[in-house]
Computed example of a mutant assay.
Amino acid sequence: MAQASSVFGLWNTSPTRHTAVEDVQGVFSGSFVAALGLYFLASAGLLTGSTAGIAFLLHYAMGVNFGLTFFLLNLPFFYLSMKRLGRAFTLKTFIAIALTSVLTDMQSRLFEIGLIHPGWAALIGGLLLGYGLLALYRHRASLGGVGILGIYLQERFGIRAGLVQLAIDMVVLAAAFFVTTPAVVMWSVLGAVVLNLFVAINHRADRYIAL
């Protein structure tokens, strides 16, 4: 009984290793919360950074499906992930991206946000994305793109993943001036800052070492 409980992750006594069940719930819950954050941003017409930001730009400018575009944009980063971060990380990241893409598209069919101030949407969306990413990072997964690059640079050179993502996000959001209004861009910057500072403060490889 005790052995079965350990295998299924009900009473895992190892402080440095996740069970398969713990990884499943971590990847699913992280993807779910991240998708909810993306929906809050989209409900106010806001953007974020990384490949999700590029997917938002294409969605607003050309009307393409956000979930599918987000999934396709992440495909090239799987090569870096497989080469540098391993098969397990790549597989869990692929599943997380697929889940987040599907769940983001499902949100509007399940509930609707009638009215929300863009500043509030930026705060809630940024925090939810931060929580989602943190859950994925702690189970050795990510939402691909810059997240993969950020984790690689943190583990290889000690550069905080959140700060790497923040720098690249600013570039993506600067491009948003060409497809939306300055007010939308500024509120989107707030959301990106909230997201990346949350990750930078809470995700440290020397503090959380579970695999």
Score class of each variant (00 low, 15 high):
residue 65 N to T: 15
residue 51 T to M: 15
residue 210 A to D: 03
residue 189 V to Q: 00
residue 136 L to Q: 11
residue 11 W to L: 10
residue 57 L to E: 09
residue 39 Y to C: 06
residue 131 Y to A: 07
residue 12 N to S: 14
residue 8 F to R: 13
residue 28 F to P: 09
residue 89 F to R: 02
residue 177 F to W: 10
residue 143 L to W: 04
residue 105 D to F: 12
residue 139 H to P: 01
residue 186 M to T: 05
residue 66 F to N: 06
residue 75 L to C: 08
residue 140 R to Q: 12
residue 196 N to R: 11
residue 120 W to C: 02
residue 8 F to K: 10
residue 164 V to S: 03
residue 58 L to M: 10
residue 116 I to K: 03
residue 177 F to P: 10
residue 206 D to E: 08
residue 112 E to T: 15
residue 184 V to S: 01
residue 34 A to T: 09
residue 13 T to M: 08
residue 12 N to C: 05
residue 196 N to P: 11
residue 43 S to Q: 11
residue 26 G to L: 06
residue 114 G to F: 13
residue 199 V to K: 02
residue 60 Y to W: 14
residue 7 V to A: 12
residue 196 N to K: 09
residue 82 M to S: 09
residue 93 T to M: 01
residue 70 F to Q: 01
residue 92 K to T: 09
residue 211 L to V: 14
residue 174 A to M: 11
residue 183 A to C: 04
residue 30 G to Y: 07
residue 74 N to F: 11
residue 49 G to D: 07
residue 25 Q to K: 15
residue 2 A to V: 13
residue 107 Q to G: 01
residue 53 G to Y: 07
residue 131 Y to R: 02
residue 184 V to T: 14
residue 164 V to W: 06
residue 110 L to N: 03
residue 39 Y to I: 05
residue 191 G to M: 00
residue 92 K to A: 04
residue 150 G to Q: 02
residue 33 V to M: 00
residue 177 F to T: 07
residue 61 A to R: 15
residue 84 R to N: 11
residue 176 A to H: 01
